[in-house]
């Protein structure tokens, strides 16, 4: 019984480690990647931008991530701009940013990439990340 419990805990630990490893890899790749032109343009008018990777087939994008980002945009416009990117149509750009799933969000400011989120991220978590990126302007 103890061995099985240990095995279960090990699986949970490996999953957690794997997940955080993937996020770290994405952050590293995103920091090394040149920003797409629409992100550079968005940063000309806003302090911070959120690159939003989505695809037409992604239900979670439509039902959860898009409404969360719209809410943030309404609250924080013009300090924050959301830049939607069709991850399927621009797979090379997605790969450069280490995007392995959708929805995914990347927070950038004048200093570069601050955070990368793989999977749905709530408005509350994004707000916290934005605050950390440019606390004085929000």
């Amino acid at each position: 019984m103890i061995e099985r419990l240990a095995m279960l805990l090990l699986i949970a630990a490996l999953l957690s480690l794997g997940w955080h490893g993937l996020r770290w890899r994405s952050l590293r790749l995103a920091r090394a990647a040149p920003l797409p032109p629409e992100a550079v343009q968005a940063l000309a008018g806003a302090n911070t931008a959120i690159l939003y990777f989505w695809t037409a087939s992604c239900a979670q994008c439509r039902s959860l991530q898009t409404p969360a980002l719209r809410q943030l945009e309404r609250e924080l416009h013009p300090a924050v701009a959301v830049v939607p990117i069709d991850a399927a149509a621009r797979s090379e750009l997605s790969a450069r940013f280490g995007i392995i799933t959708v929805p995914a969000t990347v927070i950038i400011d004048q200093g570069g990439v601050r955070s990368v989120n793989l999977g749905y991220t709530s408005a509350a978590v994004l707000r916290e990340q934005l605050n950390r990126a440019t606390p004085t302007q929000l």
Binding site: W19, T55, C58, Q60, A87, T101, V102, Y120
Partner: peptide, 12 residues
């Protein structure tokens, strides 16, 4: 734990 959608990942 991570709100990770496996269906979305496979589709992507």
């Amino acid at each position: 734990l991570f709100d990770f959608c496996l269906g979305c990942f496979i589709y992507f």
